[in-house]
Design a protein around this nucleic acid. Sequence first.
DNA 1: GCGTTCCTGACAGCAAACTGAAAAAGACAG
DNA 2: CTGTCTTTTTCAGTTTGCTGTCAGGAACGC
Lengths: 219, 219
Amino acid sequence: MRILLVEDEMMLADAVRDHLLAAGEAVDHSASVVDAEIMLRGTNYDVLLLDLNLPDGKGLDLLRDLRRKGSATPCIILTAQDQISDRIEGLNAGADDYLVKPFDLNELSARLAAVSRRYSGNPNPFVELDVGVEVDLAGRSVLRDGVQVDLTSREWALFDQMVKRPGQTLSKRQLEEALYEFGAEIESNTVEVYVSRLRRKLGKEVIKTVRGVGYRVEG
Amino acid sequence: MRILLVEDEMMLADAVRDHLLAAGEAVDHSASVVDAEIMLRGTNYDVLLLDLNLPDGKGLDLLRDLRRKGSATPCIILTAQDQISDRIEGLNAGADDYLVKPFDLNELSARLAAVSRRYSGNPNPFVELDVGVEVDLAGRSVLRDGVQVDLTSREWALFDQMVKRPGQTLSKRQLEEALYEFGAEIESNTVEVYVSRLRRKLGKEVIKTVRGVGYRVEG
DNA sequence: GCGTTCCTGACAGCAAACTGAAAAAGACAG
DNA sequence: CTGTCTTTTTCAGTTTGCTGTCAGGAACGC
């Protein structure tokens, strides 16, 4: 398992790395956000271990950014005892779990195992729509007639929501919430535009319009 | 929406209940785990609001138990500021979201809406009429002989009303009110027209005419 | 039979949705 | 930083198809 550890306290970082290396994991280490960004660009990690309290920027922004770009890499955040709000925000920003410093190294292993299990052991990540479109929800990829189609992050955010509820009509309101942070209202026809683009990429029949309500993909 | 609130701090419980009742939700309250178990046996709730720190047992066990029995009822857990591990465990045990006490009542509403929307999907209340028609009230979808049928919003508004009261005859007056806001008089035969359209889409037998009174769908 | 109630095809008006294009914002390499 | 390329958002012109209305005919109760 490839693990990226983002942590600036060297003592802790070393301890963690040693422990994980001893357990047979591949660990890369970066001590800053910029550093981490570079490493993330170069490699596909299986898990991200992220300290939120870094010198050169919020680790949280790093995570949020990743998620916005569509990465689904599992992430465990590390925070100090007294920074509760960070922890909450972290989970909201897309973290999968967190550990409070100081933590037991065995607990770290356990959580790592849990997180990666959750991601690999998924029963049925492949959804097949009867219009020649296959979707890998976990892997974030779409095939049309067997050919891979690239979706931008917004396109995916929308499509993901709809595919997860096939046969059901989703209101524009609901779909907007998939696109933007909770309350954030948008005053134009963004959803329509993205539906239009998705249709161009995936075919007209994939997304049905339910006039006056929203959209739907068939079961 | 039927909500079960499991909370032993009376002041908080009352505040929550008042707020939700004011928002038009149906709230039941229980102050202990045993109590909650009894209520859960009797009623199908749409959302469970669960305090983890209860006098007579772990709220967590209640949740885990529910999940083990296959219930997918969305659950939001309520925890105190300093019980972080509970929160993680809660999410692992099958909770859908959490709120840290003290929380803003409006945030509670927002999360409730989000969670129930998210879940208005999977385990759906499917109504099955014995004429080859299935209706997913939450997902706004109708199947005729297994085939998805598109309804316009007016058509749905009407049908929705009738399906919710199977076997009951609804007057045209009542049905008009489903179509238009409150008193808004309409001077033509709109209801008849829509019944006609629904029959064409769903089959003649779905909606029965009760001459001089109104319409009815069979249970 | 008669009167009443209900059904249904047709249609014009209009709000909702679609879509191409362009501006704005962001990502990235040099 | 600069220029280039991609993605996101906005806007406006066009298209689509829902809606309410009406009218002629069918069904019903008596």
